[in-house]
Design a protein around this nucleic acid. Structure first.
Length: 265
DNA sequence: ATGGTGGGTGGCCCA
């Protein structure tokens, strides 16, 4: 089974590229972030015409997450247990959707950006990551053999080599000790980065800003991950980042991250 | 070439 995650930066603006990419990449399950639309605006047909079932979670023009699968899509869950809210205390932002696809519990996650170290959004981001760790720990306590994939845009660069120049990030989010601790806590809870062993740095990124010719200048960040539970990590056969998809006309600012799972077990 | 990138929206917000 081939599993991927991709922050598409608007599913409507990117629908043709997404369809073309799905067709040539032969992905079975795609976790999508930043759909940037409401439920009624989601282009379901783009996916169904290619043989995928799709579940979307979007409240507004902000955030929005989805899962497309051609190996089954069951037990759809919008929001994870204990997910922090922002402003609207009755309803979390549309940053998490989970579904069972081909025996794997796939989550598509869009971690809050954080904005600045002294911004309330930064505290929200840390709370969000801590709550995800709590939820993930509970899932594994309930079933240590569960095959769980935490896929998405984590908005954290866990290592110094995950940004092009640490000096440029002094005083910035994404690289602070607290953010890296929160990411490391997910790993300690049992969710390992499946792609890094196959695509080690330095200079290996998943995101390049649109501004200032960042992509041709190779000024990127590794902030998108597929984190796998122990049982799922044992099945990972390959992992890669499709940086070719960042090229050409009208790309997302993120590249897809792909994991191949062995069919045995 | 007094801007700078590109989504969303609607006369600015977000990444």
């Amino acid at each position: 089974m081939r599993l991927a995650t991709w922050n598409v930066n608007s599913v409507r603006a990117r629908s043709e590229r997404i369809a073309a990419w799905l067709t040539r990449s032969e992905v079975d399950v795609l976790a999508i972030q930043e759909t940037k639309c409401r439920q009624d605006q989601f282009p379901t047909e783009v996916f169904t015409e290619l043989g995928y079932t799709v579940a979307h979670h979007g409240h507004s023009q902000w955030n929005g997450v989805a899962i497309a699968s051609r190996v089954g899509l069951e037990e759809v869950r919008r929001d994870f247990p204990g997910q922090p809210t922002w402003k609207d205390e009755d309803q979390p932002e549309a940053r998490a959707i989970g579904a069972r696809c081909g025996g794997v519990d796939v989550w598509s996650l869009y971690v809050p950006n954080g904005r600045e170290l002294d911004d309330p959004h930064y505290v929200y981001k840390l709370d969000w990551l801590a709550a995800l760790r709590t939820a993930g720990t509970a899932w594994l306590e309930e079933d240590p053999a569960a095959r769980i994939a935490l896929c998405g845009d984590f908005n954290v660069a866990p290592e110094d080599t995950d940004v092009w120049d640490m000096a440029e990030f002094e005083g910035s989010t994404h690289v602070s000790p607290a953010e890296r601790d929160a990411f490391a806590a997910l790993v300690e809870a049992g969710f390992t980065d499946t792609v890094r062993p196959f695509a080690p740095g330095p200079g290996v990124y998943t995101y390049w800003d649109y501004k200032g010719l960042a992509f041709p200048k190779r000024k990127g960040m590794r902030i998108d991950f597929v984190l796998a539970s122990p049982a799922l990590a044992a099945q990972v056969a390959d992992g890669r980042i499709d940086r070719e998809e960042r090229k050409g006309k009208g790309p997302s600012d993120h590249a897809p991250v792909i994991v191949d799972l062995s069919t045995s077990g």
